[in-house]
Design a protein around this nucleic acid. Structure first.
Lengths: 144, 144
DNA sequence: TATTGTTATACTCTATAACTATA
DNA sequence: TATAGTTATAGAGTATAACAATA
């Protein structure tokens, strides 16, 4: 119940957002660990599945992650054969990342698991309210 | 605009929550730095203002923070004269924390600044939608 | 000179282990 | 023995600086 939290904190938007965020992150981490995927790894697969080929820096930029941080994420996916690094013909410094068939498979299975985790996270809300919450978050982000 | 984010990430609840959370945290940090207050320090003042006296462990428990982490927070508030540590007569191992008058003052000034930061964070939403968002977050947290 | 990917390094945040003084 | 507060330490996460290859 919400009453477990002190009311001065419940008034604080960042407290509410943070609590739900970390709770959701933990749930997703658990779900995806069964597929040997980190949350960042799966998110990267999701971006690449829709928008590959793409360089590492583009991927990092899309995800709001530094280029030095994306290296380990792509290393992971590469080692598992979920993405391929190919040298860009146009710029041989850069890699072009593409998702492999098994990468697409892993992305989809992970997506279903993440959806389950989110359903549990929002278990207290009915379907219209879940949609409303998502919509409000997207709108809040878009305007800031 | 929301379109700056890849749609696979916008589908992801933890991405939305995290983006807004960290954006809000940065804004609060900026606002409170003018008062020489960290976000955790101000949140602690808020809890103590309503519920002191309280031991450090109780404070940490209320905030979801480890007892080893709360030490530095209280050190900070203590050094600035915003809270007082007094030995509990009932258990001389424990401190009883109380907010000083200047601590109450700092809490209130910080609260107004945090409210301004939150208003800017939700600038894209009208007043009813801001209330709706808070209410949905509280309900989501309460049921999980 | 500037940029991509990479590595080494530093910094922040938080938790675990071990200490002290009490209980 | 157990617990409140404290400190030292280690771990995760991320960013800055510097390097090699390429532009």
């Amino acid at each position: 119940m919400a009453s477990e939290f002190p009311s001065p904190l419940l008034d604080r938007l960042s407290f509410l957002l943070g609590k739900l965020y970390f709770r959701g992150l933990d749930a997703e981490t658990d779900e995806l660990s069964a597929l040997n995927l980190g949350v960042k790894q799966h998110a990267a697969l999701g971006v690449l599945t829709r928008e590959d080929p793409m360089t590492q820096q583009e991927l990092g930029h899309r995800m709001g992650i530094d280029r030095t941080t994306i290296v380990a994420v792509v290393d992971d996916l590469d080692e598992q054969g979920l993405v391929e690094r190919r040298r860009s013909p146009a710029d041989r410094r850069a890699y072009l990342l593409t998702v492999t068939p098994s990468g697409r498979d892993a992305e989809e299975r992970g997506r279903h698991r993440v959806a389950e985790a989110e359903d549990r996270l929002l278990g207290a809300l009915d379907e219209p309210d879940r949609t409303r919450l998502r919509e409000l978050l997207v709108r809040a982000l878009g305007g800031g």
